[in-house]
Every structure is written in structure tokens, then in C-alpha cells.
Nucleic acid binder design. Structure first.
Lengths: 134, 134
DNA sequence: TGCGCTTTTGACAATCATTGTCATTATCGA
DNA sequence: TCGATAATGACAATGATTGTCAAAAGCGCA
């Protein structure tokens, strides 16, 4: 009956996942992160990694990206909403901010009576270096 | 050795897939479309549906959406770029136009020197009716 | 129009990320 | 410290998508 059920317990595994996320740059798949944890000697089950990431994604602590043709990629989310500009050749990622986009999305949703709104946006392109190579 | 190998042959199956797409509104999964084709008496393999959809997506004839937690959804692309407002409960879809978003994406990409830019955006929320039910 | 090369098809198997299960373990509040 | 309860993790299950390859169909050319 607890409305704000903060039943989030603080476990070693959860901290471990947070730690790797904090110490790595860029996006990584759940399986990647799992492998990193094993290399560090942490003993964390793959299932747990998945569930932890889901939880973190729910609370907005991490970003999730679903690139075409692949696994979900996770990344420590710098607080605040933002989007990504991704090079489709080398995978380089640039964070971009677009307050205008945020408010536009909200407005659109509002006009149609939608509530509890979220949105995803990704920009794909070829970065300067990759463009030069071809 | 043909550089522009337009080796696209015109088969019954391909037309059939195009036809269902043309005559249905909204998004449908590959499996959906396959089922519709069977109902019509068309004899098309599931594998072929997948491959045809991929091809159509490559040429930009159809939209692809990857909602969280599910299959890919395909839709005949109404010419012109647009985005979608999707109810995460009942799946209802509303098309929304946002020229501002388009140009913003282009500008952002340009500022970072990215070329050959495309982008995806989806807005998720709960539509008025579903919100009332809960 | 008929022939042959090449693409396409389609049934089935294989893949693989993600989720479900459930007994065991660890955490947190009292 | 103790007990209720959430979290863990090994494993199985799921299910969409892709690979395979022999058989069939399209298209260009004579």
C-alpha cells in the first residue's frame, strides 16, 4: 500500500553495475557490461544485469538506445534529458540538447490529450572523419 | 559487375505485400501482414514477407518503428517526413508533423559536421481513453 | 517465342537477446 | 538481532528475426 514504494534495496550487484557504467564512456550492451563485471572479478548474473539496467532506465539514470539490428545499448545518463547524434559508420556519439524539441513533443502530445509522455529521438549521420575516408 | 544493379524483379509476392500495405492503415508487424496475406488467400512465406519489408524499408517506401518491447512495425510511408505519437496502452497512432524538429536535427548535425543525416523520433504516452480506464 | 542464367521463394532450422521461474540468499526496518 | 520480503542467479523458455538451400519463377536475349 505504500504509494512511493522505495523498495529499492542497495545491493552489491546494483552498485557494481552502477560503477561500471560510471567508469565507462559510450554505449554498451547488457552483455558487454556483464563481461566487464566478470573481468573485474565481480560475480553478477546476466539476468541481474538486465534487470538492474531496466530499473536504472526506469528511473532515468541511464540512457537506452536501440540501434537497428542489434542489442539494446545502455549508457550512464548525464542528468537531464538529451538526445544523440550517432555516426552510422564509426559509432561515435555526440550528446545534443534540444529544449525546443522537448517542449514541442509535450505540446503535440498535449494537443491530442495524451498524458504521461516520453519520447525518443536519435539522429544518424556520417561524421566528418568517416565522410572523408569514403 | 553492374554498379547500379537494379535486379529487382517483379514478383507476385512483392506486389501482394505492397498491396496489403497500401490498403491498411496504421502500423503492422511482419507477422500481422503475413497473416493478412494468408487470409486473402495469397500464398506468401513469412521469410519472404520479412525480406520484402526490408527491401521496401531500404528504398524508403515504408516506415519502420521499433517500439520498446516488441516487434518491428511497418507502415506504408505517406510521402513526406513525419513522426508518430503512440499510445503505449492501446497502440493508437497519431501522425504529427514538426518542421521545427526536422530543421533542428539538420542544424545540430551540421554543427558537428555530420553529413547524410537522417533521424527518428517517437513520442509515447497514454491516450485520453486509456488514461480514463485506469 | 523459347532458353538459360540468375534472382527469388519458402519451409525449416538456427540464432540470440531478452524474459520467466523459483529456490536460495541478502537487505532493511523494527 | 530477527524476520518479512525483495533481490539474486542458474537455467529454461520464448519468440522474433536471419540463414540455408533446393526448387520455381522472372527477365534478357537470340
Amino acid at each position: 500500500m505504500n504509494p512511493e514504494s522505495n523498495a529499492q534495496r542497495n545491493t552489491k550487484q546494483r552498485s557494481a553495475v552502477r560503477d561500471v557504467l560510471a567508469e565507462t564512456e559510450g554505449f554498451h550492451s547488457a552483455q558487454d557490461l556483464h563481461a566487464m563485471l566478470r573481468d573485474r572479478g565481480e560475480r553478477v548474473g546476466l539476468t541481474t544485469v538486465y534487470r538492474t539496467l531496466q530499473g536504472l532506465a526506469d528511473t532515468g539514470e541511464v540512457d537506452v538506445m536501440r540501434p537497428p539490428g542489434g542489442e539494446h545499448l545502455y549508457r550512464r545518463c548525464s542528468q537531464g534529458h538529451h538526445h544523440h547524434l550517432v555516426c552510422r559508420s564509426c559509432g561515435r556519439t555526440v550528446e545534443v540538447l534540444g529544449p525546443a524539441v522537448e517542449s514541442w513533443a509535450e505540446k503535440m502530445a498535449g494537443e491530442h490529450g495524451f498524458v504521461d509522455v516520453s519520447h525518443t529521438m536519435e539522429i544518424f549521420g556520417t561524421c566528418p572523419e568517416c565522410a572523408q575516408k569514403s
